[in-house]
Nucleic acid binder design. Structure first.
Lengths: 138, 138
DNA sequence: TGCAAACCCGACTAAACCACTCGGGATTGA
DNA sequence: TCAATCCCGAGTGGTTTAGTCGGGTTTGCA
């Protein structure tokens, strides 16, 4: 039930970008220093975030990254799915066919319920909530 | 956000025991065959479950394992915490002191909310719910 | 009394994954 | 031009996972 640093750092970096949304691109070096993360490692996380259209990059001097959408339009779930892969707790829940026991598996219902609750929280929490300290509200 | 096979198999085995609760001990070999799990591996999972008092073992011929409490008194959370360790999604949430940024960490609130929801589901789902197909009810 | 069925325990291992690091290339503003 | 910046692929040491293996010890039953 652990999240890796990819998810942790990814959300930290995106939150950093959200705090500076609308003020031009922020350099990787700045984010890394501000959040206390390895710059090269963070770079690896930005790649999929860009490819997935969550951030835009500006190359060259004075370049950097910026959110591709407003903070309220990006959920923590969006970020985690991109940097961590699918969020389901067990392979067999995400992909029913892969589970040989799925038909008679009594445990399946707990995992399904769990996945639903996890996705509820992560999809209903946006960067805007993080920035305004209103996580879990409305 | 993945669960390991320890958690998956642990719940499967405990559910198996719950289905045969009150009919004497069930041999590891029987559970392993019924659930399609390696017997030796399952043995490793039963050790902590026994040490934690969730199951009782009967040694010698005709021996086996049985639940130490009624199925309604054992939650999925109980099982997972024993075989998987603490359920929190990030180290820094479980142990605030270990997180250098905890004070100013905006992301922290999401992880706390997430952990709370996960524990809610797992602690309110018992083996009895699994056996009766009433997961998520009452 | 002997034996086989069962639990008990510690050590080992191959493969995968994690959290990075490294080195170089392409792009662009000043 | 040059320095800042993003872009990309490859490598790496350590840890974890999902087991296997080989031997105990205990006990019901013939």
């Amino acid at each position: 039930m652990k999240l890796t640093t990819r998810g942790e750092y990814g959300v930290l970096a995106m939150h950093d970008l959200a705090m500076h949304y609308g003020t031009g691109p922020v350099a990787l070096k700045v984010i890394a220093a501000r959040q206390g993360i390895s710059e090269h490692y963070l770079e690896q996380l930005m790649r999929p975030l860009r490819q997935d259209g969550l951030v835009r990059s500006v190359r060259g001097a004075q370049g950097g990254y910026e959110l591709a959408r407003a903070p309220a339009e990006i959920s923590v779930g969006d970020i985690l799915r991109v940097v961590e892969g699918p969020l389901s707790t067990l392979e067999c829940v995400a992909d029913g066919a892969s589970c040989k026991r799925s038909a008679k598996c009594a445990a399946r219902s707990v995992w399904e319920l769990l996945d639903r609750k996890i996705n509820d929280v992560l999809d209903s929490t946006t960067l805007h909530h993080l920035c305004t300290g209103t996580v879990g509200q409305e």
